[in-house]
């Protein structure tokens, strides 16, 4: 086993352990942090394969974006800090079966097709190549998808504003007029009932 293989197995073990912790942790916020570390492990695998751009995208989008989104949505719930009860036996069996199915499926695929070492011919996938290809206006260039992506992002932005934005309140400080006559009965032993008229508007300031 050479050095490269040792590094690969170390990264893979790290990713798997973090993924297991994410699944088994009973506190949902910790679960998200374990998931974040697992994503970092996958990014490390990309670095190990020397595809730096994919690794950078993995860190920027998944570690920096998706997991932050997940953490935000955890904070929207009431039970961010509480300890969750363990899953029921039925769920454990079902998820174990699903995981087993996935394992056999991918193992079968890998076994069937086999990744020969002939594919180890060095492929060039530098950021510069990606950039040139992306901006190329020739027949095999990707300039149209590149511009369409901006439209996609625009529609995503407009969509999330339309769905998630609450309509703003008209004015924060509003004047509440008191009803015509409010009779407050103050019962004190010596005096009679006192009528108090409130005419001045109350100002309720919402903080």
């Amino acid at each position: 086993m050479d050095t490269s293989a040792i590094i690969f197995y170390a990264i893979a073990a790290f990713t798997l352990v973090m993924g297991l912790m994410a699944v088994t942790s009973s506190k949902i916020f910790r679960s998200a942090i374990w998931l974040l570390l697992s994503m970092v492990g996958i990014a490390a695998l990309y670095f190990w394969m020397q595809v730096e751009f994919i690794a950078a995208v993995q860190i920027i989008v998944y570690v920096g974006g998706i997991v932050v989104l997940i953490i935000f949505s955890i904070f929207l719930t009431q039970q961010a800090g509480t300890k969750m009860p363990g899953p029921s036996l039925k769920r454990i069996i079902a998820s174990a079966l699903a995981a087993l199915f996935g394992l056999t499926f991918s193992f079968n695929l890998i076994n069937h097709y086999g990744f020969s070492s002939a594919a180890s011919q060095p492929f060039s996938l530098s950021v510069s190549d990606i950039g040139v290809q992306m901006l190329s206006t020739t027949e095999h260039g990707y300039i149209l998808p590149f511009e369409v992506v901006s439209l996609l992002l625009l529609s995503a932005m407009v969509g999330c504003i339309v769905i998630a934005l609450k309509p703003p309140k008209e004015n924060v400080e509003r004047t509440v007029a008191a009803p015509e006559n409010i009779t407050v009965n103050i019962t004190e032993p010596e005096e009679e009932n006192v009528n108090v008229n409130i005419r001045e508007p109350l100002i309720i300031t919402e903080v």
């Binding site: 989008v61 920096g64 974006g65 929207l76 950021v127 950039g131 992002l153 932005m157 934005l165």
Partner: peptide, 30 residues
């Protein structure tokens, strides 16, 4: 429990985050 309005910031952040991903290879070859 946080206000649901903060989720919008997370979503907008993610969109500009993805935009950055596309600008990175552009910046290398401009």
């Amino acid at each position: 429990q946080f206000n649901v309005g903060y989720y919008l910031f997370a979503l907008l952040f993610l969109i500009f985050d993805v935009e950055m991903v596309f600008m990175y290879p552009w910046a290398v070859v401009v």
